[in-house]
Design a protein around this nucleic acid. Sequence first.
RNA 1: UGGGGGAUCGUCUAGUGGUAGGACGGCGGGUUCUGGCCCCGCUAGCGAGGGUUCGAGUCCUUCUCCCCCAGCCA
Length: 560
Amino acid sequence: MNETKPAPANFIEEIIEEDLRTGRGDRRIHTRFPPEPNGYLHIGHAKAICLNFGLAAKYGGLCNLRFDDTNPSKEDPEYVEAIKEDIRWLGFDWDDRLYFASDYFERLYEFAVQLIKMGKAYVCDLSPEEIKEYRGTLTEPGRESPYRNRSVEENLDLFARMRAGEFPDGSRVLLAKIDMASPNLNLRDPVIYRILRVPHHRTGRKWCIYPMYDFAHPLSDALEGITHSLCTLEFEDHRPLYDWFLEALGIENPPRQIEFARLNLSYTVMSKRKLLQLVKEGHVRGWDDPRMPTISGLRRRGYTPEAIRDFCERIGVAKANSIVDIALLEHCLREDLNRRAPRVMAVLRPLRVVIENYPPDLVEEMEALNNPEDPSMGTRKVPFSRVIYIERDDFREDPPPKFYRLAPGREVRLRYAYFIKCTDVIKDENGKIIELRCTYDPETRGGRAPDGRQVKATIHWVSAAHAIPAEIRLYDRLFTKENPAEEEDITACLNPKSLEVLTDCWLEPSLAGAPVGAHYQFERLGYFCVDPDSTPERLVFNRTVELRDSWAKIEKKGAE
RNA sequence: UGGGGGAUCGUCUAGUGGUAGGACGGCGGGUUCUGGCCCCGCUAGCGAGGGUUCGAGUCCUUCUCCCCCAGCCA
């Protein structure tokens, strides 16, 4: 067979293929996903995960999971477990290659000693404020620290004593000796070790000095044999420093850092800090609130790993900052769920309907398709009786043009059942419609009229005597602004209607015992999944995403 | 005013000197026992100016706008 190789999908694949051709990086592909365990993963991380693991898979390489845990004051083992679970759920596997930067502390310390011996690092006694001052500004060069030219011996001694805990936090740091006049601030003698008496979640109290990201990252990559180290755009300025450490320490086949644009999604925020704020201030119920763009939130909402992976593939990888329309994510979701979610009938806002000419004691079992997209999913029986509930939205006493559903004197089809015609509208003392009286045509059982007459609409229903009650949570975008991150205060543009809880909902009886996490399409309404808050007595559903709704569009247009 | 990046339909993204393409969205139509799915069609773009060239989104040049950097965070 003569298969043409697919063109590289993005600039990173181009670089990789070039490296594979020229032999740079040992003709291997080895990537890593390096989260800091200081928060939950979000859909932006999913992009990085798909990229790193996907590249390894595509080019026959490997991808490690490495926790970048060099700052114990922000990290927590709770996050480590949550992150592992999320990556696995997304469908990726790091086999036995689970690493922690903290595993390398001893070796990183040795690297630092090596740097000192080469005269490329020194201990500085300046205070944090002084260091900042000496660093200069964007437009003015920095000044050299008075401690910059200490002897190797003194530096070695001081660094050992930093490790031994002889000095208080913040009193001294180890700096790389590079260039205080560099226009790139990262090269103005950056801090590589600081004194921090904070117990580490993995190394306990063994260390009171911890390496900085800029030092730990390239060397951790080197230690793991990483060939391509992908990160986001804001680290572009750090690349010279990344390369400097590898070069100074004589690393062979050094890994190559490549930067790409992080993902932003419309109507949400993506920074860990802002997400943490939403959680802490109680604007959402937690990291896994179904309105959150976190992996755990999306999972609880009912998103599938397949949909998220497909989305990550479709958005592409580039270097331009962008905000992807959340409609694309929803499209990927619907496409996946349409294929696999069983159809059921559920009424969210019930309107009681009495079918006056239907025998009071009769119950019929109507046969319904579980998924018209996939006949192999079979059929089920849905009980039908004299009193049913329909959706309040499916009836209008005074129907506007193009409203095809039920109205006084009008006939519609009940999905998988009969044609019914509305004969009477019953209201309470306030004029609120509380019940409809209808008649059915026994000849239309199964949904077709022998005389060939047609109806304009098919609506869903549940049998009042058989339906099971449920709570259903409807979600909308969390923010009213397309890019909340650019607002002074993101909480000012929170969408007050991002959550609506419906407590008087009725489900067809086949849903009894539905397991947590199960996905369904509630016909004509959307995709829903069973929330963990469900109890054996009462199911709770989340609306994952609505079906596209052309009637809603028509109605909205009419209102304008 | 220093350095590092970036600019292609409304959005995301291809295009590597030879007819600017795809996806999402929007609009219109077909089909339909879900106003869903599916199918068809339409819509709409190279930040600006100059130059090189038979030919420029692509090369050169000037400019404009946007993002990132002055943590002992990552």
